[in-house]
Lab assay of single mutants.
Amino acid sequence: MMITLRKLPLAVAVAAGVMSAQAMAVDFHGYARSGIGWTGSGGEQQCFQTTGAQSKYRLGNECETYAELKLGQEVWKEGDKSFYFDTNVAYSVAQQNDWEATDPAFREANVQGKNLIEWLPGSTIWAGKRFYQRHDVHMIDFYYWDISGPGAGLENIDVGFGKLSLAATRSSEAGGSSSFASNNIYDYTNETANDVFDVRLAQMEINPGGTLELGVDYGRANLRDNYRLVDGASKDGWLFTAEHTQSVLKGFNKFVVQYATDSMTSQGKGLSQGSGVAFDNEKFAYNINNNGHMLRILDHGAISMGDNWDMMYVGMYQDINWDNDNGTKWWTVGIRPMYKWTPIMSTVMEIGYDNVESQRTGDKNNQYKITLAQQWQAGDSIWSRPAIRVFATYAKWDEKWGYDYTGNADNNANFGKAVPADFNGGSFGRGDSDEWTFGAQMEIWW
């Protein structure tokens, strides 16, 4: 008995050590931004985005507190085989008060198993909700290839000249389909599951310092038995992507060409959309029709120009041509140079221009935006974070068209359509004006 009692403290210590080691193995990653800002004409900070554009130049032009908190852990490992559990909870508030209630979004919860298939060394099996191989332009917060959501897949299969990845994910639309009631009355209240099937071939070395990635995505509306879509709904579509990445000037340049059809055009990033119906009456549900095509040509990157200068840049042309004439032509160009006074202090400027032409009206909206920021960051790279910055932003815009969301679809035949700025004596778009804002912001990723 005495021997047992003497061994007990040692056993407890060993158990505590094991539990401590396991606790220390938890990975904590994430992203956050928050700050305070004012508008020159009075009131809180207002942000500037061109009507019809899918993004905006973000430096000194973000008006919310946003965070993603990721917890993950390698829960099992034997040799080169392992299982990893990953989670991500995100939230966004308007940064107007101390207490701002919000419903967090559970954006990731997945398990990734590496090297589980003997004859596919280096590959990963995964299932669950996941940010899946996302491609974006940081300076405009624009995701041009992103099929994230609940799904499953097999990735990084070594095929000799590259890595092959296969995945299936889902994005549902509210009110996407109906069941038959009586007297030809349909009640569009059932969600429609939109499935996306993704095939990618990446890391193909085609020139010194250059790699090529090719991808095909097929999206479709997956209806339940005895349900139907509204007439004209976009049932399926394709997205084709080619991306060349070149190492240059201690950074990279990415050149991207994408072509999409029908349900893959509205978001243009790989998620299927077009079966959703915002109104019970299918007579007024025309606005979900996105049959047509999209072409996107994009070049972006980040480079170092000597010891003291870094720069991000982007140039993009996007043409969404829809059968219902509600598409757009959008082109944007911008730069973000950074001058480093010390390894932790810099001055950053961002200059961006957007131009969006309405397919329906032929009119154009444009905006110039310039931001000057003094910044303190954890390192001497344009990617170094955390960063604390004080900024001043000036924007000038001239908008000739907007979307008509007055009333509702039952009493407005133009609901959701592009109209000229002065349509029917109204005021659509943001008109011709300018404004400036100033404030302070922190940004961090880890």
Rank of each mutant, 00 (worst) to 15 (best):
I3S: 09
T4N: 10
A11V: 03
A11E: 12
V12G: 04
A13P: 05
A16G: 10
G17V: 05
G17C: 07
S20C: 14
Q22E: 05
Q22R: 03
A23S: 04
D27N: 02
F28I: 04
H29R: 10
G30V: 05
G35V: 03
I36V: 11
G37V: 09
W38G: 05
T39A: 04
G40C: 05
G42D: 07
E44K: 01
Q45R: 04
C47F: 08
T50S: 14
G52S: 01
G52C: 02
G52A: 07
Y57N: 12
N61I: 13
E62D: 07
W76G: 10
D80V: 12
K81E: 02
D86V: 06
T87S: 08
N88K: 07
V89M: 06
V89G: 09
A90T: 03
Y91F: 15
V93G: 12
A94E: 13
Q95K: 15
N97K: 11
N97D: 14
E100G: 01
A101V: 08
P104T: 15
P104L: 10
P104Q: 13
F106V: 15
E108D: 10
V111M: 10
Q112L: 13
G113C: 09
K114E: 13
K114R: 08
I117N: 12
E118D: 15
W126R: 09
A127T: 04
R134C: 03
D136G: 14
V137F: 10
V137I: 08
I140S: 14
F142C: 07
Y144F: 14
S148Y: 14
P150L: 06
G151V: 15
A152V: 10
G160D: 12
G162A: 14
L164F: 15
R170S: 11
S171Y: 13
A174T: 12
G176S: 00
G176V: 04
G176D: 00
S179F: 14
S179P: 03
S182C: 01
N183Y: 14
T189I: 00
T189S: 09
T192N: 13
T192S: 15
V199L: 14
V199G: 12
Q203K: 13
I206S: 12
N207T: 10
N207I: 08
G209S: 08
T211A: 15
G219C: 02
A221T: 04
L223M: 08
Y227F: 06
S234L: 10
K235N: 07
W238C: 08
A242D: 08
H244L: 13
T245S: 09
Q246H: 07
S247G: 01
V248I: 03
L249P: 05
F252I: 01
N253I: 03
V256L: 07
V257I: 04
V257F: 05
Q258H: 01
A260G: 04
S263P: 01
Q267R: 06
Q267H: 06
G268A: 06
G268C: 02
Q273R: 12
F279C: 13
N281I: 14
K283N: 10
F284I: 01
A285T: 09
Y286H: 11
N289H: 04
N289D: 05
N290H: 10
N290T: 13
N291Y: 05
H293Q: 13
H293P: 03
L295R: 07
R296S: 05
R296L: 05
A302E: 11
S304P: 05
D310G: 06
M312K: 05
V314G: 04
M316I: 04
Q318R: 01
W322S: 03
T328P: 09
W330G: 05
W331G: 03
G334A: 03
Y339N: 10
W341L: 06
W341G: 06
T342M: 00
I344V: 05
M345K: 15
S346C: 00
V348E: 10
M349T: 02
G352V: 05
G352D: 01
N355T: 08
S358Y: 11
K364M: 03
N366K: 08
N366Y: 10
K369E: 00
K369N: 01
Q375E: 15
Q375R: 04
Q375L: 15
A378V: 02
G379R: 13
D380E: 08
S381G: 12
P386T: 10
A387T: 01
A392V: 01
T393N: 00
Y394S: 09
K396E: 01
K400T: 07
W401R: 01
D404G: 00
A409S: 10
D410Y: 09
A418T: 07
V419F: 13
P420H: 10
D422E: 09
N424S: 10
G425V: 15
G426S: 01
F428C: 11
S433R: 14
S433I: 08
D434A: 10
D434E: 15
E435K: 14
Q441P: 15
E443A: 02
W446L: 13
